[in-house]
Write a protein that binds this DNA or RNA. Structure first.
Lengths: 312, 312
DNA sequence: ATTTACTATAGATTTTATAAATAGTTTTTA
DNA sequence: TAAAAACTATTTATAAAATCTATAGTAAAT
């Protein structure tokens, strides 16, 4: 049994296809066939049921592949140990970001990061929180940026910043003339909410949920949903709440519709999250420090005192 | 990086000597030299400091070897998964037993066990609890039988039985004429205690400790210390306490000196303990069931109601 | 029935692991 | 301090393996 064989088995289990898995492993298909056969012979069990199309794992195969994932992960940590020793920050780093954070945060930190850590090959993907959790667990993502807390097993969180919500209030809305908004002013009946807007806590959560299905259908299909939210609001569907960073690049005409909350402002917690194994921790640390620095700058321009809904 | 290379590194780290490690790995010394060099070249770090005699691990080498232990352990679990799937109970199984359990328990279950599970190659070693914990952690033991609870991290316990203590009271002792003994009758001043006799709990623990150093010097050096204890008792050094199973094969002359405790009798908890990774769990299960069965038989002949000091 | 989409097998080639012999080190001993 | 002992590293040869190319085999889809 070799680590290579286990990697091959993982690739086949993932793609359910020898040929595709071979490509991903940068070897030919017969190589996989023979290596998997050797592994099966050595263990004297059948791992893959080639009878079914697409290929399926046998019962014991599933257990073996699960364990193979552990072994390969642990093996990769050796390189991690070496990198840490050398103070080397580099290699491939796959980062997931949720849609409502992606467009505002990415332009802010990306240049900085690749300048500071040119040896890191960043692969960034826009994914939903749900997809992110799956991919961190199966090893397809090294880390992600998402709204927290998630309280997911196996996943650790490290807070990057708290992003206040800002009310967007169109013409003719009953709250239009208020200078600052109170949480108590909010009426769920005339408010458009983003899926991520579930962070109010103190009792608003349940109200949000009544809107959630509707929101999923209308906005969740594309990443630019916050733009859509603003347009719907402009067309009289109600007020809405925007994450603070999104309000920074609104056109002047639209930004006149913004109303900040009275302090303490409700906010969402944004964290970098990663597997508990803490693989590639140096890069995660690096990214944390870069983003924290950038955000400190962005917040400095604002007049918003950020208070987390989680802090007492 | 291969699993083989990691195993070689582990062997060298353990024996601090390429030549000895090579023997243990059943390869020649140049094989180890070249494989370790390949590993070091691939990772581009020095793992072993050959300058020192005996060989030492470098700082990063220590971390790598620690991680290698993980990887190799996880890799061995693949075979474990396969065995479990096949219902196969076999392979090498290294069991540690503490001195005061070894001579009585081993003859009782060994024949039974090897008859029922002939494919298991048992390697049994008599070790102190301390040595056992070290060896379970470093992977040199698969399991052990010891007095519990130990509350050691990384180690799980599964109770096999509760073994009552029986008082051994020589001629002319003040308790000689009592039919049954109470815990309250015990006077630490005239009692010889075995190191393992620290299981009284309810306040006796501290008293035992006053004797511990003395006991270490006199009896702990050899496994037959209980015999010595009886002899010392016979020579007027005081009464003593014996684990129940030891009293079963005392000569008739000596067994007349035994006095059972009034129920509930103080007892020691004896468990099979193993690493939390639960490697070779099928064999551990098998051993547990064999020993439990045997003990149920042995206890049936006794008139001793067994009540644990831990049960309320 | 034929094509398509795979996986398995065979034979050749390259790479790798290992052994045997030996050279090079350091430490111990006389 | 010279010789021996106790090691590890290097060299060369060999056996084993991993991999490739080409092709055969097999099941599903058309």
């Amino acid at each position: 049994m070799t680590i290579t064989q286990l990697k091959y088995a993982l690739a086949i289990a993932e793609h359910k296809n020898f040929t595709k898995a071979a490509e991903k492993c940068f070897v030919t298909q017969p190589t996989l066939s023979t290596q998997i056969q050797k592994l099966e012979d050595e263990l004297d069990v059948v791992i893959f049921d080639r009878g079914k199309k697409p290929i399926e794992l046998t019962e014991v195969g599933r257990k073996i592949v699960f364990q193979a994932r552990n072994i390969v992960n642990e093996a990769e940590r050796i390189q991690d140990i070496v990198d840490q020793q050398k103070g080397f920050i580099g290699g491939e780093f796959r980062l997931g970001i949720i849609p409502t954070i992606m467009p505002t945060l990415l332009p802010m930190f990306l240049k900085n990061f690749i300048k500071k850590y040119p040896k890191v090959k960043l692969k960034i993907e826009e994914l939903t929180t749900e997809e992110i959790l799956i991919r961190i667990n199966d090893g397809h993502l090294d880390a992600a940026i998402a709204a927290t807390p998630l309280e997911s097993d196996n996943i650790k969180e490290r807070v990057l910043y708290y992003e206040p919500f800002v009310a967007y209030i169109p013409d003719n809305h009953r709250l239009r003339d208020k200078k600052t908004i109170e949480v108590a002013d909010l009426d769920i009946e005339d408010m458009l909410l983003l899926e991520d807007g579930h962070c109010f806590r103190e009792g608003v959560i349940n109200l949000c949920k009544t809107f959630k299905d509707q929101i999923d259908e209308h906005f969740q299909l594309e990443s630019g949903s916050i733009e859509t939210l603003i347009k719907l609001s402009n067309e009289g569907m109600g007020m809405t709440l925007l994450p603070y960073l999104h309000t920074l690049d609104l056109k002047e005409k639209l930004s006149s519709n913004l109303r900040h909350f009275a302090k303490p402002s409700p906010a969402r917690e944004v964290s970098i999250i990663y597997h508990k194994s803490e693989l590639k921790m140096q890069i995660i640390d690096a990214m944390h420090s870069v983003i924290s620095g950038i955000i400190r700058g962005a917040i400095a321009f604002s007049d918003v005192e950020i208070i987390s809904p989680l802090s007492k």
